[in-house]
Design a protein around this nucleic acid. Structure first.
Length: 470
RNA sequence: GGUCCCAUCGUCUAGCCCGGUCUAGGACGUGGCCCUCUCAAGGCUAAAACACGGGUUCGAAUCCCGUUGGGACCGCCA
């Protein structure tokens, strides 16, 4: 049974990079009928918050990255870590270190200034019981010779010289455990078979391997994912724009579109760009995960989002767009709206909106009582020249009983033929009268969605404006 | 500074493991054309890359070495 985990630290929101790590774990688990575990690594009590735990869970749920076990929290397991530390201490595989953080910082700086490696110098390592027992931080005794090989599923064998490794702190002087230790203990306890995480952990891996060995446990398989970079090729951060997953929800992105974008950043499946969740699960494999880091490209994400909006069922879009209509002030919060009609309106706009925010805004002229005219469009199309045509459209419309796009087209066509003009000469003035602007879905569709009553009212208003009555 | 990782169009990538089929394929973005009542969507099309230098070989994007460039890590953060 394959068991993987996503183990974020709640010191911030779920961000793009974390989401992709979670996604790859999720896909690997689902592809292999394994288990996906969520574990919150909150041992840094000064920086972890409940709020961020909630935010991470919210982000995971929004992306529909369902986990099978957890969320486990490391702060619930301090006694477990403590017992493992005691075991190592007893076996002489760890020792107390009474160097203060200030001293260490000082020595690190000096080493760096002299061009030396800033690793811990092992000062307390050989004190052999002379050091203050039971106080200070606990360090793990790393082997100082030989090599450690990380056999990575993505990178192959990576060799580290053990003399490069330093005795890392596994328990702080306040008794709380640290990351490199808890991660091993938890992965063992939770029977994790594959550790799938960011590339930034590759250098930690040999240290963790030694902890597994000291504890006498089997070493899991590792897969280190390439990093996601910003446009300047440095690690993706706020400087590059939105990095929080939920910011994309607010900007009107569909979770499936984000997932699709993220998975293609580092993974490929031939020439295919758009995938259903089922296809992703079916095809996902580390064989097709690249080694090099990738630059986050918001334009491609936007394109994918537009593709997902086009593919969506308009009825589903109704529920998704309503919050955006509310926040744009197009409808009042909790206002009743005819969902069937809204669905029809959305259908005409789907291929024109790249985000739900755009979709909501483009719905404005359908929903609002009055049109807001674009000044340029108004002067160009609502004038003496178009007035007679507008009148004829009005008369034609009044005469039909079936107010459908099909019938409307007939009305327009007969006027066009009668005057020997192009359809555009008729459609554009009507478009401005209906929407206030020069861009919209096909004019017949717009009229049909608007309905006879609203159409006639807007035609009247446009005619009044031309006559200067408004 | 040390260690580790990486290197194909501006960007994401296919190809690389198993050298010839690569005048290097696809996608986003950009330009042009078509469609057309506008805007989109869609279709067609163009420009655009094997970082560099050495090997190995009849032949290298593909294998080896080096250089350069980029990234990550070196915390009583995770």
């Amino acid at each position: 049974m394959i068991r993987v985990r996503f183990a974020p630290s709640p010191t911030g929101h779920l961000h793009i990079g974390g989401a992709r790590t979670a996604l790859f774990n999720y896909l690997y688990a689902r592809h292999n009928n394994g288990k996906f575990i969520l574990r919150i690594e909150d041992t840094d009590r000064t920086r972890s918050t409940e709020e961020y735990i909630e935010a991470i869970i919210k982000g995971m749920k929004w992306l529909k990255l369902e986990w099978d076990e957890g969320p486990f929290r490391q702060t619930d397991r301090f006694d477990v870590y403590r017992s493992y530390v005691d075991k190592l201490l007893k076996e002489g595989k760890a020792y107390y270190c009474c160097c203060t953080p200030e001293e260490l910082e000082q020595r690190r700086k000096e080493a760096l200034a002299q061009g030396k490696s800033p690793k811990y110098d092992g000062r307390c390592r050989n004190l052999q019981g002379q050091g203050a027992k039971g106080q200070g931080a606990v360090r793990f005794k790393m082997p100082q010779e030989g090599q450690t090989v990380v056999d990575d599923l993505i990178r192959g064998k990576v060799v580290f010289e053990n003399d490069q490794l330093d005795d890392l702190i596994i328990m702080r002087s306040d008794g709380t455990p640290t990351y490199n230790f808890t991660v091993v203990v938890d992965d063992v306890d939770m029977k994790i078979t594959h550790v799938i995480r960011g590339d930034d952990h590759l250098n930690n891996t040999p240290k963790q391997i030694h902890i597994y060995k000291a504890l006498g446990y089997e070493i899991p398989l590792f897969a280190h994912l390439p990093m996601i970079l910003g446009s300047d090729k440095t690690r993706l951060s706020k400087r590059h724009g939105a990095t929080s997953v939920m910011a994309y929800q607010e900007m009107g992105y569909l979770p499936d579109a984000l997932v699709n974008y993220l998975v293609r950043l580092g993974w490929s499946c031939g020439d295919q760009e758009v995938f259903t969740r089922e296809e992703l699960i079916k095809h996902f494999s580390f064989e097709n995960v690249g080694k090099s880091s990738g630059v986050f490209n918001p334009e491609k994400l936007l394109w994918l989002n537009s593709q997902y909006i086009i593919k969506s069922n308009p009825d589903e879009l109704v529920g998704l767009v309503i919050p955006f209509l509310e926040s744009a002030g197009i409808i009042r919060k909790g206002q009743d709206i005819d969902r069937k009609w809204l669905s029809k309106a959305i259908k005409t706009l789907q291929e024109r909106a790249k985000t739900l925010v755009e979709l909501a805004n483009s719905l404005r002229y359908y929903i609002a009582e009055d049109v807001q005219y674009d000044e340029k469009a108004k002067t160009k199309f609502l004038n003496e020249k178009s007035m007679p045509y507008l009148k004829e459209v009005k008369e034609g419309i009044e005469s039909i009983s079936d107010f459908s796009a099909l019938e409307l087209e007939k009305v327009f066509k007969s006027i066009v033929e009668k005057h020997g003009i192009k359809l555009g000469a008729l459609a554009q003035p009507v478009r401005v009268a209906m929407t206030g602007g020069t861009e919209s879905p096909g004019i017949f569709e717009v009229l049909e969605v608007l309905g006879k009553e609203k159409t006639l009212r807007r035609l009247d208003k446009a005619l009044k404006i031309i006559k200067g009555e408004n």
